[in-house]
Amino acid sequence: MRVVIAEDSVLLREGLTRLLTDRGHDVVAGVGDGDALIKTITELADGGELPDVVVADVRMPPTHTDEGVRAAVTLRARYPDLGVLVLSQYVEERYATELLAGSSRGVGYLLKDRVAEVREFVDAVVRVARGGTALDPEVVAQLLGRSRKQDVLAALTPREREVLGLMAEGRTNSAIARQLVVSDGAVEKHVSNIFLKLGLSPSDGDHRRVLAVLTYLNS
C-alpha cells in the first residue's frame, strides 16, 4: 500500500511513517501543509503513481485552521479512487459531513488518539485505501445525537443501536461480530432489523451501507 502523509508536527509525521513502514507499507511522501499535499498528489498522479491513501492532519500551516479538511475535500473530488483519512485532535460532525458529502467511498475521519491502538489504526488506513470507510466513534456519537430522527432511533434496542454505531464507523459484519463477541449470523439479523426499522432498503456493499445510514442520520 502506498501512503502520503500530511502532518505539520515533524515528530508525529515521523512516528506515523515509522509505524506504517513497520507494517510493510510504503510511505511515498511526507508533507507539512495543505497546499504541498495537493501539489504532491497532483505530481504523483501526473506521473501515473497515484498513492492508495492520504493520511492528513486537519490543522496545518499557514492558517492553522482547517487546511487538512479543505485539502481532503479537494482531493476527493479530483481523484475518486484516492482514499483520504483525516486525523485530528478533535472531531466535529461538521467536518465529517463535509468529508462524506456525496460518497463515503474511501474516506476516514479519526481522532489522533486512535493511533494508540496500532493494529486497529493500521486496519483503518488499509480499509480506507481499499475504498472503505473509517469514522471515529465520537463522530458517530455526534451524528446520532444530532439526528432529527430521534423518535425512530428510540425504537431501536440498545444492542441494535450499538450495531448501528459500529456500522456507521464503517466496519464489516464480521468485524462487528468480533467486537461484540457474537456470531456473524446474529449481526446480520440485527442489521436487517435496523434497516427494517429505519425504513431503508438493505444494500450489500459495506460503504454503500455506511452511506445509507449516514444519509439517514443527516437528513
Binding site: L11, G15, L19, A116, E117, V118
Partner: peptide, 14 residues
Amino acid sequence: AQARLVNLAMGLGL
C-alpha cells in the same frame, strides 16, 4: 502537549 502525547501513545502501542 497534545501532539507529543499522540506520538507517545503511538510509541507505547507499538
